[in-house]
Design a protein around this nucleic acid. Structure first.
Lengths: 192, 192, 192, 192
DNA sequence: TATGAATGAGATTTCATTCAT
DNA sequence: AATGAATGAAATCTCATTCAT
């Protein structure tokens, strides 16, 4: 789907945003980081907007793959959720820049196509988590006195807030470790 | 603290950001909206950065006031939390633009002073919620089998995610109503 | 001729130029230094140009006074020259800012009225020194094998260069003392 | 060292300053004169400051070359000085703009890097002239009753003042011719 | 005499993008 | 596939100046 060069550009773009915010993502900075001319970027992407779209596409595909792999490997709802959460924390630990970008939806507000895609991704995630919770409720694994909607809000919201704190104050703690503790708490709350 | 004109500018700035993201906040747009020249803005703020700082200051002061008022009016931990959550949802319903700005910490990343202030605000909020939860745990109002840290992450995180969804998809539901439902769930989870 | 406030403005203007060059002389800086509003400056001078003209006028008058006083107090050419040189060095030592301004004719290039005045001042000085030298030559005090024109160029030029060096490298030596040594040399050269 | 375009820009900058002073050197004027957009200038120099530095670098290199060529071609001190003086007058006659710029040290006062470079150049020149005079004194070509320091001040100072007059009053005489007359006088003074 | 509020013009610089080579 | 040179538009900010109070 993406050529090697395109991937390189997308990764550099994510890094730039992570380092100093969206305003830091300019074609000049991008080309400098990769070591080519500004003009060269346009061999690989038609416009800056396309680069931003590529970032989101990249993330969406990764997430879709994660969902599928989870569905195949685990069958109990709580196991699925646990894998999803822990895997995400692991991802962010490996590539912190992604955290900076993917939870900052406001960054992409300036174009309708971007807004649409961000919405899709957020929807997809929420729907997945809600779906698994619903399954868990049907299977009597997860409490039913609170709706799947509220439970997913708190679970996902907790995760996002933890990641946001971690990123904003420059990774002052071990995200994976804290993530596991958060998951313990979430599990305790979800369980019947 | 702020003159009338300065307040006007800060509000216009919040609106501009809310409408189309940070990139929409230019001195030109700002001055046009207020109906003065670009140069006139600089009579009231030394630089654009100072306007952004003023937005954060404004929010911080509002929040500090809210905290104080809550502490005086309510004494049970769960009442305090409820008021905090509901009042926030009400605030965002009244001034949706604020939601767009205040939960988008990444927007302000490009200057150390801004990052510092954003961190302060986030810390302040988390500490407040954790503090009240701790009180509730001491008073046997709130469960103690999950730590105040994890509980506050889920509660605040849930709220942030709800607001983010609401803002991103252009206010498709009644935030106050959904907020109350979320609070019900949070309360159910916190209670002993 | 100039009101007290006007004098204050002129002095502040000289200081500003001396500190960081002509670009540092803005109405804003000027008013800030004096402690009034920008608008207030315009009560005392019609325009910035008039302030620059006032600086030159101020200097010209000071110099005219010096010339007259010298003519009255001394009668031998070499005494007159000596007083002129030493007095100038003393002046610059007392008010270093003046040196920065008055020997930087290029500063005033952007307006014909300023250029005209600068030329007048330079002409006046050169003519004075040449005149005194001529007198000295007639009175057989000063050598006649080199013309008054060349002698005045070297004498005045030497002084200007010494002052320029002193000002540019932030007053690293005692100007008056070095000035006296330079004068000794000049005198030795002028004498029959 | 400098590309062709960069040289072109430097020359245009010198001309602009010569015509109407530093305030006339704007990126707009510069680009207009060269026939490109303002943005194009920034392809060749990172900032306006760099252009000013380039002017000084250009002059310094020219001067260094002149020094070396003189040292190789002449061996008597007075010949060396003569060549230096006359060559300089010739230079200014050929490129009058340079005179306007290079003797107006105050113009560059607003940046420490510029001040430093101006000082270097002035020092270099004074040291060269003093050095040659010292040699002449050792070789009994030049009088020793006045120190090299005072002699160089008068010689160089005289030259600077002549050039300043010539430039300020719009080249009303033949600089080379007057320069030669000044040199005659200087020589007469230096000789034993 | 001075201020507070404003302005139009213009400064430097950056941006995404284009195009001939 | 990449570069070198350029551009038009726009960004932030500064300037001298004005005017009602």
């Amino acid at each position: 789907m993406f050529t090697r060069r395109q991937q390189e550009i997308v990764e550099a773009a994510i890094d730039l945003i992570a380092e100093d915010g969206i305003q830091n993502l300019t074609i000049k900075n991008l080309s400098r980081r990769i070591g080519v001319t500004e003009a060269a970027i346009y061999r690989h992407f038609e416009s800056k907007l396309d680069i931003l779209l590529a970032i989101l596409t990249f993330f969406r595909e990764q997430q879709t793959a994660l969902f599928q792999s989870i569905q195949q490997q685990h069958h109990r709802a709580l196991d699925r959720l646990k894998t999803f959460f822990i895997e995400r924390f692991r991802q962010f630990t490996r590539k912190p820049a992604l955290a900076a970008v993917i939870f900052s939806e406001e960054i992409f507000q300036n174009d309708p196509r971007l807004v649409k895609m961000i919405n899709e991704i957020m929807d997809m995630t929420l729907k997945y988590v809600r779906g698994v919770i619903l399954e868990g409720q049907s299977a009597a694994e997860i409490r039913t006195d609170i709706s799947d909607e509220q439970l997913s809000l708190m679970a996902l919201g907790g995760m996002r807030l933890l990641v946001a704190r971690w990123h904003l104050s420059d990774h002052p703690f071990d995200l994976l470790q804290e993530g596991e503790r958060l998951w313990e708490a979430i599990q305790q709350i979800l369980e019947v």
